[in-house]
């Protein structure tokens, strides 16, 4: 009986850390001033803000007897969602960043050298 309680505690801690990471990523989305800087905040929001609380929800649903007989279904569903987000979120962000740089709609502002396209590099863009 002690292992279920430990699972519920670990799940609750992971969900709390995920909520805090969500808040950090959302503040970063509003504080950064460029698209290429906001990609860092998107990384935090996808991995620490979505993958971690989904794993925590899976552990919590596994350990909690109070959810009834269908808690294994809930744990499996959240685990599959977590693994899909772990695969899909970096792929989507990378495709979007590559397309943005090829289309050239956002200048690369805090830039030292840009080997892909030298014309987009805005030198002396302040303290990035």
């Amino acid at each position: 009986m002690i292992i279920e309680e430990v699972l519920v505690w670990i799940g609750m801690i992971m969900v709390g850390v995920g909520a805090f990471a969500d808040l950090v990523a959302a503040i970063g989305f509003n504080r950064f001033r460029n698209f290429y800087l906001r990609l860092h905040a998107a990384t935090i929001g996808a991995i620490w803000g979505a993958f971690l609380p989904l794993i925590g929800a899976s552990l919590l649903a596994t350990g909690c007897y109070c959810l009834g007989e269908y808690r294994w279904f809930m744990a499996g569903g959240s685990l599959v969602t977590a693994i899909l987000i772990l695969i899909l979120a970096p792929a989507g962000s990378h495709a979007l960043a590559r397309a943005t740089h090829r289309a050239g709609i956002v200048p690369v502002e805090p830039c030292i050298v840009d080997h892909l396209d030298e014309k987009q590099c805005v030198s002396g863009g302040g303290s990035g």
Binding site: R38, G45, A46, A50, P53, T81, I85, A89
Partner: peptide
């Protein structure tokens, strides 16, 4: 990018609300 990150976090939030 914002709607993408919002959708992933919304998926986690929906699972927590289902619990």
């Amino acid at each position: 990018l914002a709607v993408d990150s919002m959708s992933y976090d919304l998926a986690a939030f929906l699972v927590i609300l289902a619990i």
